[in-house]
C-alpha cells in the first residue's frame, strides 16, 4: 500500500481513572487515510473512537504506536490538524469573530489580518452578519458552524471531527451534514469523522471504519462508492440502505446490549 496521508499504526492507550482499574481504550489500532479523503469511524459507545481523535490531535500521548500526517510524526498539538468538538468548545466571552480567530491569534497574527482571514470562513460557513454575536445568542447549528470555521481558519491539512452533530436536533443535523459536504468540497481537506450514527457515516464518507468494542481495534473497512456530490434523495436509494445494513451487521455484534459505561 502506498504511503497514506494520515497513518496511525498499532496505537495503544491504557489509562487509569482515579480510584478505578486501568482501562485499555485502544489496542493496536490502525488507520490509513488518503489525501482529500473523507473517512468516518463508527463503533459502539466507549470503544475509544473519540479517544483516538484526541490522541491523533496530540492532547493525549499513546502508550505505544506511531502516527504521522503527511509523513510528519505526531507529538503534541500541531498546525496540520484541527478539531471540531461535539460540545463546540466555544469561548462564551468571545464573539463569533474572536472565537474563529483563536488559532491565528495564538500564532501571533495581527488584528487586521486576522479579521480579513476570519471573514472568508465566516462567509463560507454562512455566518455573515453574526460576527459580533456571542455564543449564547446562537442556535446549536450556528455554534457548530463557528466550530467548523474556527478549525478551518488555521488552514489545517486534516480536519478531525468528534461527533460534531451529536448535540444537534435531527433537522439541524441533516442541514449541517449537507453544509459540511459543501464546505468540504470548497475547502478540500482530509477529514476524519467520528460518529455513532451509521446513516451519517454512509452519507458523508468515502470509507467507513468499523471499530470493535473496547479495547478498540479496526474490525473492518467499508467502501462507500456513492457518487458525489451527494444529495438528500440518495439516502432513500436501495444502494444507500444496502451500505447501512452492511455496517450495521458488522457493528451489532460489538454493541454491549447491557449498555456499558461510556468512556468516549
Amino acid at each position: 500500500m502506498a504511503v497514506q496521508y494520515i497513518e496511525a499504526n498499532n496505537v495503544s492507550l491504557t489509562f487509569t481513572p482515579p480510584n478505578r482499574m486501568p482501562v485499555t481504550a485502544l489496542q493496536g489500532f490502525d488507520v490509513a487515510v488518503g489525501e482529500g479523503e473523507f473517512v468516518s469511524i463508527v463503533g459502539p459507545s466507549g470503544c475509544g473512537k473519540s479517544t483516538f481523535l484526541n490522541v491523533l490531535l496530540g492532547l493525549i500521548a499513546p502508550n505505544s504506536g506511531e502516527m504521522a500526517i503527511n509523513g510528519n510524526p505526531v507529538s503534541g498539538p500541531g498546525r496540520d490538524r484541527a478539531m471540531v468538538f461535539q460540545e463546540f468548545g466555544l469561548l462564551p466571552w468571545r464573539t463569533v469573530q474572536d472565537n474563529i480567530g483563536l488559532a491565528p491569534e495564538l500564532r501571533g497574527v495581527g488584528k487586521r489580518q486576522r479579521r480579513d482571514l476570519c471573514q472568508t470562513f465566516i462567509d463560507m460557513v454562512g455566518l455573515s452578519g453574526f460576527e459580533a454575536h456571542y455564543p449564547h445568542e446562537l442556535s446549536g447549528g450556528m455554534k457548530q458552524r463557528v466550530g467548523i470555521a474556527r478549525a478551518l481558519v488555521s488552514d489545517p491539512d486534516v480536519l478531525l471531527m468528534d461527533e460534531p452533530f451529536a448535540a444537534l436536533d435531527a433537522q439541524t443535523r441533516d442541514i449541517m451534514q449537507a453544509e459540511l459536504l459543501r464546505i468540504w468540497s470548497e475547502a478540500k481537506k482530509t477529514v476524519l469523522f467520528v460518529t455513532h450514527q451509521i446513516e451519517e457515516a454512509v452519507y458523508l464518507s468515502d470509507r467507513v471504519i468499523v471499530m470493535t468494542k473496547r479495547p478498540g481495534r479496526t474490525k473492518t473497512i467499508i467502501d462507500i462508492p456513492l457518487d458525489r456530490p451527494r444529495d438528500y434523495e440518495m439516502r432513500v436509494t436501495p444502494e444507500f440502505n444496502e451500505l447501512k445494513l452492511s455496517i450495521w451487521n458488522e457493528l451489532k455484534d460489538e454493541i454491549d446490549t447491557q449498555g456499558g459505561p461510556h468512556l468516549g
Binding site: N54, L57, G58, L59, P77, G78, R79, A82, M83, F85, E87, G89, L91, L102, A103, L106, R107, R150, S154
Partner: peptide, 19 residues
Amino acid sequence: LLVDTVRAFGGGELALYRI
C-alpha cells in the same frame, strides 16, 4: 473542554491563563 480547545489550537500555559 475550553482548556483542551486552546491547547489543541496551539496555546501554551500563558495563553490558557489569558484566554
